[in-house]
Simulated scan of single mutants.
Amino acid sequence: MSGLLRRLLRIAARPMRRDRGQGGYVVHPYRGYGSRHEVLLMGRVFRQAALGEVIPRYGVLRDLADVIRRVFRRGLPQVTVEVTLGENVTTVTTDRDGYFDVLLPIEHPLPSDSAWHHAELHVVLPGVEPVHSFTEVYIPPAEADLLVISDIDDTVMYTGVANKLRMLHRLFVKQAHQRMAFPGVAAFYQALHVGRSGKAKRPILYVSRGPWSIYEMLEEFFQLNRIPVGPILFLREWGISWRKPWPRRAEDHKYDLIQHMLEMRDELPCVLIGDSGQHDPEVYARIVHQYPERIRAVYIRRVERSPERERAIQALREEISHTDCDLVLAEDSAAMAEHACAQGLIGEEGLERVRRTSQP
């Protein structure tokens, strides 16, 4: 096996190493997001196979076995999950694939001196030890003056999510973190996060077309590239089985998800960031029509250069021209940052950092 394939296999197996091959029941929550009134939290309860003592703890065979275990995780339906955030407690039930969505009203106030809050999750299953886990929930501080919602694929990083081997190659081959993120992205998102004052601590939410199964890999990608961490929300599960051989469809789901995020913080203006390759401009234009006074700018990274696509995006720009929102079709991160600076969304220092890092 070539060095490349071994490296890809090792990376793909990495999220499984925490259980040391023991398998069993797992409750896996993802970072949550909310306001002082309610929070949204997602996750999954599943069972994964154990390896036993037959397969060595290290080496290609172990990595391959861990990848197979990960692919064939079995979600547990109709399981009750108890979620505790401070003194706020609720229970939810998993769906047929083991996933759960929590919308937790905040009836008991959380500490106001922190934006990240610790949530605990508990699952009691018949005949086994209770399963526990925890995650972090981001609640923007009172001084936050802007909400940023960004696509990931072909917006923050080069695409490949539809082809998993290609995605793994681009993300995790030697020094991949230096060329996977679009130039200037980290500096631009850092500038948006801190604002003109440098202390704004604005929330950044990431929405992806990818499957939940790449969550851990994306988190590592964000850390490697020093892109501000925020809740990552996905549109669908790509779980493959004989019963469901194709990914779930995601029609209108992105629109509904963004709309819900806006309604959770109805006092915050918002910036939307996406790419021209798929449906981001159309979805974002719908959002602008729905919230014409709240969307400050729509930034679309140009990745599709066909004349037909250019005309379609121009038509969308004209559709929302009666609002205060500009739809910017940008060649690179610097073009987005220049507009953002002119609109007072980021400071001059942030703009200069984006300019310095935007060259491929």
Rank of each mutant, 00 (worst) to 15 (best):
F182E: 07
P111D: 14
T159C: 02
E349W: 12
L329S: 09
P77W: 05
Y215W: 11
C270H: 05
Y189N: 06
E136K: 12
H118F: 15
G34W: 03
H279V: 11
V45N: 03
R249Y: 12
G98L: 06
H279R: 13
G210H: 09
L40H: 08
R286K: 14
R170C: 01
F72V: 14
G32A: 04
V128Q: 12
D275F: 01
L121K: 01
I273T: 07
V185Y: 02
L205P: 01
I204E: 03
M16C: 11
D266I: 08
E310C: 07
V81T: 02
L8Q: 04
A334E: 13
C270P: 02
A186Q: 05
F100V: 00
R249M: 04
L257Y: 04
G23P: 06
D280S: 07
R353K: 14
D275S: 01
R353F: 09
R209M: 08
R170S: 00
R20K: 15
E82H: 09
V39H: 08
L64I: 13
P307R: 06
P141A: 14
P360A: 06
A144D: 02
C325Y: 09
G127F: 12
E82K: 11
L51E: 14
Y138R: 13
D63C: 12
W238N: 10
E318R: 13
K244P: 02
R70N: 14
G59C: 05
G160D: 02
R44L: 04
P140V: 10
G34P: 03
W212I: 03
V137S: 04
G184P: 03
S150M: 00
I68T: 12
I139E: 07
G350P: 04
Y99N: 08
F188H: 05
M167D: 07
P126L: 15
E216G: 08
D154H: 01
H193C: 07
E282F: 10
Y215L: 06
L103Y: 04
L329I: 12
D151P: 00
V173W: 01
N225G: 08
I313L: 12
D113G: 15
P140Y: 09
Y189V: 07
M1R: 09
N225T: 13
H253W: 02
A181P: 05
S208D: 00
T159K: 01
R265C: 14
E318S: 13
R96I: 09
G59K: 10
H169T: 03
E53V: 10
E310Q: 12
P15A: 10
R57N: 12
P15M: 10
W116M: 10
R69C: 14
R301I: 01
D63L: 09
E267F: 14
M336G: 04
L5P: 01
V124R: 14
I68A: 13
K244E: 15
R20G: 06
L218G: 02
H169V: 00
E293M: 01
I55N: 11
P29A: 00
Q314Y: 15
I139F: 05
E53Y: 11
E338I: 08
F188Y: 09
K201N: 13
V194W: 14
G127I: 07
Q178T: 00
R311I: 15
R170H: 02
L41Q: 11
E87F: 08
G184S: 11
M167L: 13
P111W: 15
V92C: 06
R196I: 15
G127T: 09
L171G: 06
I68L: 14
L9R: 05
L329F: 06
S2T: 04
S35G: 08
H279L: 13
R170I: 00
E318Q: 13
